[in-house]
Write a protein that binds this DNA or RNA. Sequence first.
DNA 1: GCCCGGAGGTGTACGGCGTACACCTAGTGG
DNA 2: CCACTAGGTGTACGCCGTACACCTCCGGGC
Lengths: 233, 233
Amino acid sequence: MVQQLDGTRRAPLNRDRVLHAAVALADHSGVESVSMRNLAQELGVVPMALYKHVANKEELLDGMVDVIVGEIDPPADGTDWKSAIRQRILSARRALLRHPWSWRVIESRPKPTLVVLDYLNSIVGMFRAGGFSVDLTHHVMHALGSRVWGFTQELFPASPLPEDPETQAAAFRELASRYPHIAEIAMAAAHDQGSVVGQGCDDEFEFEFALDLLLDGFDNLHRQEWTSRGTRS
Amino acid sequence: MVQQLDGTRRAPLNRDRVLHAAVALADHSGVESVSMRNLAQELGVVPMALYKHVANKEELLDGMVDVIVGEIDPPADGTDWKSAIRQRILSARRALLRHPWSWRVIESRPKPTLVVLDYLNSIVGMFRAGGFSVDLTHHVMHALGSRVWGFTQELFPASPLPEDPETQAAAFRELASRYPHIAEIAMAAAHDQGSVVGQGCDDEFEFEFALDLLLDGFDNLHRQEWTSRGTRS
DNA sequence: GCCCGGAGGTGTACGGCGTACACCTAGTGG
DNA sequence: CCACTAGGTGTACGCCGTACACCTCCGGGC
């Protein structure tokens, strides 16, 4: 059915349109509803048609990651390595936050695409340009881990609180009695933002806290010309 | 069919046997082959029988995580907070390494189980016992992120290299020309371990490198009585 | 001795998934 | 004019999780 109902002809699909449709679908219906069938329907086409543009679902997911990575700003130049990298990572973070499903998909990919390698390569290059030794750069990339993408695994996924303040208070009392330490820091976080109780922390603050801790640590090692020789067993 | 072929009676299932069978199945056939159907077959039972012991597959996965968390050593006492936490996290790491699929499952759980909360609560308690303020403890937990589990997201999943050294060298040349920076650190890593080329880094070293960088950073903040008040926007 | 309730196991069925394979069709270059 | 091909179709298969109705024992109360 190349003809539309009104007789006009649907523009033929291509890989790019497929990938962007998949991203859009994930954005507004959740990544779990990105199935070949749903996506095909969204594009007004039969499921098997998609296979003319992507080899299989894995490749579709890889492509979706590439679309997100494409939204990351290019590196700023004219600054020191630390703020350049900081900015780049925070840009990645913004891109990922626009597509809340994306970090899950990134983590699920068994091997990086060329586009992903491009991004990682450029981050490595920024450390090298900042004078980091190959050795230190290597370990530093590992230490960043998924933080180069601008996300940290949430330990306490923010589950929506019950509406009723009474049951909410009861839930908190139970939490406090079994997990006093967790309750304590949850309280502190809540107090920080003036909300009554719980319901999440300031993600942005937490992310930058950890990022800066690492970057400062890297900086120290770099200044004192750290090398893995000394520390190896 | 409660009777076995030899006439003896199969011991009735229970939640624990189901969970341990699931872990065993994941261990030796990969987590992707843990389906209700496969698991049931492994237990000599019909798929629907499992639903008498776990509510659904999600709960099965939660239970599998609990089994792994149960393998983590209890906290050592009689040492300073830093080495106590370090040891505990490295114990978690060993548990997870025994079940290579487990970190993926842990990451996929939308909300923590009671057992998981117990573990996290006790880690928080260890920081508190070390004299950390509630405030600092909170941010420090975020900074650790998935590292409290003893894993970091691998940026370059080690894909098996081609056998033939010639095609291997060719692959590496291509890598080097498109991703010079990555090639450089890959070379360094390979050189470190005397292997010819690539094929992974010393995971244990990388993990402890990052962990100690963080713990030392925490230590500094703690000593200088850091508080989030000063740094908040 | 009887019954009955519930725990544990069974069988069938449904709707969803990814995708192999054979097919059709419209447009293009020779 | 015709063969080729890129793009789209239709059917079918084997997985998946699980709802629902059922059966079959076993133990406890009468």
